[in-house]
Amino acid sequence: MQKSTMNNYLPQLAATPQQLIQSNGQPVFGLFDGSIPDFNLRDFVYQNLMDKKANPLARYFQYKQFQFICVTGSDWLLAVAIADIRYANSGFAYLYRFDSNLAISKGVLLPGALGCRMSDSPSAGEAKQGFAAYKVEIKTSATHWQLSIDTKELKASLTIEKASQMPLALCAPTGYNGWTYTEKSNALAVSGTLELQGKALDLTQALAGYDFSAGFMRRQTSWRWASINAVVEDQAFGLNIAAGVNETGLCENALWFNGQIQHLSPATFVFDRKDEKKPWQVSSLCGEVQLEFTPLYCRQEKVNIGLLASNFRQYVGIYTGFVVLQNGSKLKLNAVKGLAEDHYAKW
């Protein structure tokens, strides 16, 4: 690894509170050094745009939540999501094979809470979604996440170890009166079983990442996002960076290398929506990240049904470039597998 003269980005971390909502009825804002165990949403005092107490219906429908897991193996990538947007719930599970450029993808979009149950805690909860032909379940605890998938072609029973490293955890103001809690961790050890069309896939080199996001989010929002779980220079390497959300004095950008987290400066994504094969340029404000992403596969969906709209594109591809570690060393990435996402939502 080469040394770099680039400046380090060193944000101040706050001690993790035991509860998200304070005695004044408002959330604790900050970048934390661990996972918040109790959201105690019942104590949140939610006000409307005129500073009056929001009615129960608005309080219910304006709270959103999604959970996401990605597992990257030697020649494949698995991505799974469950989202509760109150008016509807959606989810997907797909597996992409790099060796054959083929993907098996399943998904659901159901009205209201039909077939879906979520939890308010990233460290003590359970999320379920689906019906007879499509079932996904995520269980969270302080030490690990468990993922089960049961579809005709894709089956999984996986355990993702989260206790080995510090997560990226933050709560940021959103819009005038909302907030968003985000917790993510990448480059985590994974064990269990994963089958594609009845054939077991090798988990020996697999690494996983998770995302727990919830809160009173903007009615209309959009984001760009990049994620990596890979072995680089014989060490576990993870990356999570985004632009468009959680940027009210904070940003949800970090890398993990050999079990250590490094927070990163705000990110920029340059790409062409009209040319989905054209590489993306992904970089950070202080220069710690300089990457090019080449898309290979895209899972996309467009929904526009009045109250709800979603223009979603999640790409599987490869990253090439470098990141600068806290000690100034330049870590080179050469054709590393990962994800990129471009999403607009009205919810």
Rank of each mutant, 00 (worst) to 15 (best):
K332E: 15
S283H: 03
A340W: 02
F312L: 11
F293V: 09
F322I: 00
S283Y: 05
C298M: 11
Y319L: 10
R299P: 00
A340E: 05
L264C: 03
I318S: 13
S329A: 13
Y315T: 11
N334C: 07
I305G: 02
T268N: 15
N311Y: 14
L291D: 04
E292G: 09
E288I: 01
I305S: 09
S265R: 11
D272A: 06
Y315G: 04
W280F: 06
S284M: 07
E276Q: 13
L264E: 04
S310Y: 03
W280S: 10
L291T: 01
K330S: 04
V336C: 09
Y319V: 01
D275W: 01
L264W: 03
F322W: 01
L307T: 10
T320P: 08
F322V: 00
R313M: 07
Q314E: 14
V289G: 03
A309I: 05
P279E: 11
I305K: 10
L296R: 12
S283Q: 09
K278D: 10
N334G: 02
N334S: 10
E301C: 14
G287C: 03
E276T: 14
I318C: 14
V270E: 13
G338K: 09
Y319T: 08
E276S: 12
Q326P: 01
K302H: 11
F322C: 04
Q281T: 15
F271H: 15
E276R: 12
A335L: 02
N311W: 08
N327V: 09
K278T: 14
R313Y: 10
V303G: 04
L285A: 10
N327L: 05
G321W: 01
L308W: 09
T320Y: 00
R299N: 13
E301P: 08
L264K: 00
L285Y: 03
K330D: 02
E301W: 14
Q281Y: 05
N304V: 02
S310K: 03
T268G: 10
L264F: 02
L285E: 14
G328P: 00
C286D: 08
N327R: 06
Q326W: 11
G306C: 07
G338L: 05
Q314H: 08
N311V: 01
Y319W: 08
V323F: 00
Q290Y: 02
L307P: 06
Q290G: 03
T320N: 11
V324Y: 01
F269Q: 06
L308E: 10
L296H: 10
N304G: 04
K337E: 03
T294F: 02
S265Q: 09
Q314M: 11
N304M: 08
R299M: 12
V323C: 13
K332R: 09
V336Q: 06
K337N: 07
S283L: 07
A335I: 02
K332I: 11
K278M: 13
S283M: 06
L285I: 00
G328V: 05
K332M: 12
A309M: 13
P279C: 12
V289T: 03
V323R: 05
F322A: 07
Q281F: 04
V270I: 15
Q326R: 14
Q326E: 14
Q314F: 07
N304F: 07
W280A: 08
E301V: 13
V289I: 13
R299S: 12
V282S: 01
